[in-house]
Design a protein around this nucleic acid. Structure first.
Lengths: 232, 232
DNA sequence: GTCTATAACGAGATAGAC
DNA sequence: GTCTATCTCGTTATAGAC
């Protein structure tokens, strides 16, 4: 009976993806309460009314569950950035820049623990696998896409870079913004570190007593960054 | 016998400060191995051949020990920054800027776990007390001190800021660089977030596969920051 | 007064037998 | 899957050494 077989298989498949989703959801709650280091397969299982050994059918280890959470977080942030950029016509480069920076910050403020997981201190004993890079690069690629508008045809050629730095810039350009000169890439990378530095400071409490709330400062800095990078 | 009394008191005092130092030293080792969350009073005591309850003579709770480590880290970083700035004559503003940024990065690379403790994700369940702020502000004050050179007398007055932002800038100016106009303060704060954003990215692994090693990029960005802030 | 050691509590994690 | 024995944790009360 191939029909029932395939039907039952898809039902099983559905149950499996559903449970996988529930496990990750509960794991995110644990993340919020105890941090990435405190994530415990047993606690997740307990909260779900399961037995810890059952979880190993879905995630072969605690670290793999952590990896899944990290990839999900990078993807969620990447999606938010992509959507923000796509929400405006490509011609409005400055508007896209504002929208993307704002979307990144909004996502971070809405998901502080997931943000801390990917951009905060590394979890002791955990080594992120290569598989996370593809998702991590998405938000960088969105920023990189906005760089092309920063180097209009008429501009004078940028000064040459020191060789080692030029090589690194070329590698980055290859990955996120081909045909953009190295000097512009480097300004974009500076803006990248600046954007996330600001968000991390806000989220991790460095602004308390001075720039908190940081909405105005953030908006101000976003304009300064756009000017600095050369977004028209 | 006041002489022996005072002598024995100082001996005890010395033993006490010595043991306090050893406890913090061992705690820092634990920090490196298990992170801030994994810091355990019992483990520290065990490693020191003491009993856990004895530690309470020196630190009234685990969180107070954590606070002591945080303050020590901020102070070490602040001292490094102050020394770097004082190493050059005040007239060489650009040189001081380079030296301070380099010293901050060097300290962070040499003490990655202590850096993560103060600038990384917050430890779950731990709330840093106000007492940490005085030490935390030291490095910001050093940067602020360099801002005065960025606003020479002949410069045109900067454009006015939105009111709320101006107030925040005034608060910061009051604390780290009086008589510096708000717009310059804000550029300095931007550079501050940029500097630490870069170091955090380097330390937390975001540069792997692209800007790693980051020495050249860091040097390049430091010059850009100095230009942006207006350091002569 | 200052310190260390013993013992215990309640909560939580873990390992292994069943 | 379930249960239990055993571990670690932060913290406190208490007793005794210097």
């Amino acid at each position: 009976m191939t029909a029932t077989e395939s039907a039952s298989r898809t039902a099983r498949e559905r149950a499996r993806t559903e449970l996988t989703r529930e496990i990750k959801e509960e794991a995110r709650r644990q993340l919020a309460a105890h941090g990435g280091q405190g994530l415990s397969l047993r606690a997740v299982a307990r909260e779900l009314g399961m037995v810890s050994s059952a979880l190993y059918r879905y995630f072969p280890s605690r670290d793999e569950l952590l990896t899944a959470l990290i990839i999900d977080a990078y993807d969620a942030l990447g999606s938010a950035a992509e959507a923000a950029s796509a929400g405006l016509p490509a011609a409005e480069a400055r508007g896209r820049w504002r929208a993307v920076c704002g979307a990144v910050r909004d996502w971070a403020l809405a998901h502080p623990h997931e943000y801390a997981l990917i951009y905060g201190s590394p979890v002791p004993g955990y080594q992120a696998p290569q598989a996370t890079i593809a998702s991590a690069v998405r938000v960088v690629r969105v920023l990189g896409g906005l760089l092309t508008s920063a180097c209009a045809a008429g501009d004078e050629p940028p000064p040459p870079l020191p060789p080692a730095l030029g090589e690194q810039a070329a590698i980055v350009a290859d990955a996120i913004a081909p045909d953009v000169p190295g000097a512009v890439i480097l300004r974009g990378l500076t803006a990248w570190t600046q954007l996330f530095g600001m968000i991390s400071f806000e989220l991790f409490g460095q602004f308390i007593g001075s720039l908190d709330p940081a909405d105005e400062f953030f908006g101000y800095a976003v304009e300064q960054m756009a000017d600095f990078v050369g977004i028209p």
